[in-house]
């Protein structure tokens, strides 16, 4: 009894603008937070891209990605990721329309596409290794593995979150519906960023 009471007391704590946007910023907290997070992500990948440019421009000669990397696999992956960005938006809009079922189906689709992306990436990696191309082989391979690897980690991170909202998080639908929808929107924003990074990686590693 007392326990329940205390729990109530503990969770009573109301953080303002947790769910509804603050008029003067026009954002609810989580959305504000994710934008800031993405800003720092931009700095992270920005730093890596500039390192890439610096190393490449100072290099005597530079291997051409398309000569040994699989452009087809990468192209397919590009479309896979773009598709996954679309499914996230679908999921969010269906939730907005109050349709949890379809919403979850689309979250599932996103999860599946993300997994598909990793599968292709894995095939590419193993192919490189069979050709005895490792990070230590040369600066290009070093950049290639570092950038795609880090991007892969971001994909996995996104998948974990999606999986959580698909299988567990949706309990919030009954209790805090608005909050649940917000969360899907927020992770969606993150997912678009991950997608965007790949849009940059693809040409700069495979085509240039």
């Amino acid at each position: 009894m007392a326990d329940a009471h205390a729990h109530a007391a503990h969770h009573e704590l109301e953080i303002p603008y947790n769910v509804h946007p603050r008029p003067d910023t026009g954002l609810y907290n989580a959305k504000f937070g994710i934008w800031l997070f993405l800003a720092s992500e931009v700095m992270l990948f920005g730093a890596l891209f500039s390192s890439y440019i610096l190393l490449r421009t100072s290099a005597a000669h530079w291997p051409r990605g398309w000569e040994f990397l699989s452009v087809t696999a990468a192209t397919i992956n590009t479309f896979v990721l773009i598709a996954s960005s679309v499914t996230v938006i679908m999921a969010w809009s269906y939730l907005r329309l109050g349709n949890l079922k379809l919403g979850r189906i689309y979250i599932g689709a996103t999860l599946f596409l993300a997994a598909l992306f990793l599968v292709f990436k894995g095939i590419e990696y193993s192919h490189e290794f069979h050709q005895h191309r490792f990070p230590s082989t040369n600066t290009f391979m070093a950049i290639y593995f570092t950038l795609t690897g880090l991007h892969g980690l971001h994909v996995i991170g996104g998948m974990v979150v999606f999986a959580y909202f698909l299988f567990f998080g949706h309990k919030m639908w009954q209790t805090e519906r608005e909050r649940y929808i917000n969360r899907i929107e927020v992770v969606g924003l993150y997912w678009h960023f991950v997608d965007l990074v790949w849009i940059f990686l693809f040409p700069s590693l495979y085509l240039m």
Binding site: L44, L48, T146
Partner: peptide, 18 residues
């Protein structure tokens, strides 16, 4: 973040032989 990037690169140098 740029230091994080640098740390990743140095880890690659030390662990992956880049």
């Amino acid at each position: 973040p740029p230091l994080e990037a640098a740390a990743v690169l140095q880890l690659m140098d030390r662990l992956a032989g880049t």
